[in-house]
């Protein structure tokens, strides 16, 4: 592997993507929500479908559809921004007192980069998450699943232009979803 080789470029790309995702998790866990919002493009689509139990040979029905069905989330930056502003009011009782939240991001895979070459403008990234929430005294949620992100390079850094969040639950076991993914 030599400097300028495709392998090295792929490693560097994966490294910058991972650094970006870890930085994002850090902002969330440090409750720096407004800075977190800045990581999204203005046209972001933030989507968490619900998951149905369906026969193995009917996988197309497993997920509720964006733009058509009721989902857990199916929104753009405007609603995400309102969610952040709500937490910051200090009277959003579901997050007041604030939860202790920890995001673990793993299994980062760069699935596609375009255009090909050392400096792609967009990359599709898949990862796994464990979001741990503990609040008040003993209340604890483990939210585990996958994310599929479209990252876009804006001014030398990545921005999230699309995020699909697959939560591996059917009936939601948490009483609410006041955490971000």
């Amino acid at each position: 592997m030599t400097e300028g080789s495709p392998e090295l470029a792929r490693l560097l790309l994966k490294h910058t993507v991972e650094e970006f995702l870890y930085r994002e998790a850090e902002l969330l866990d440090e409750r720096r929500y407004e800075e977190w919002l800045d990581l999204f493009t203005e046209d972001v689509h933030y989507w968490m479908p619900m998951r149905r139990n369906v026969p193995r040979d009917e996988p197309e029905r497993e997920f509720t559809r964006p733009g058509v069905d009721v989902n857990w989330f199916d929104e753009g930056k405007d609603t995400l921004t309102r969610r952040v502003r709500q937490i910051l009011t200090g009277v959003h009782w579901a997050e007041e007192p604030p939860s202790r939240i920890c995001h673990l991001v793993a299994n980062v895979q760069v699935l596609r980069a375009s255009p090909a070459g050392p400096a792609p403008a967009e990359v599709e990234v898949k990862s796994r998450f464990i979001v741990y929430r503990n609040r008040v005294e003993t209340e604890t949620d483990f939210l585990v699943g996958k994310r599929e992100d479209l990252l876009r390079r804006v001014g030398g850094d990545w921005r999230i232009a699309r995020r699909k969040i697959v939560l591996d639950q059917n009936v939601l076991l948490a009483k609410n979803l006041t955490v971000f993914f």
Binding site: G67, W72, D74, E75, H92, E139, N176, L177
Partner: peptide, 27 residues
């Protein structure tokens, strides 16, 4: 579609409004 978006952001565990109901009923 307009209503669907409104319903989602209002209602249920991911809805801005009902999140607080669940906290109150819980405790």
């Amino acid at each position: 579609d307009f209503l669907r978006h409104y319903y989602i952001r209002y209602s249920g565990p991911s809805g801005l409004t009902e999140q607080d109901d669940m906290e109150n009923w819980n405790y």
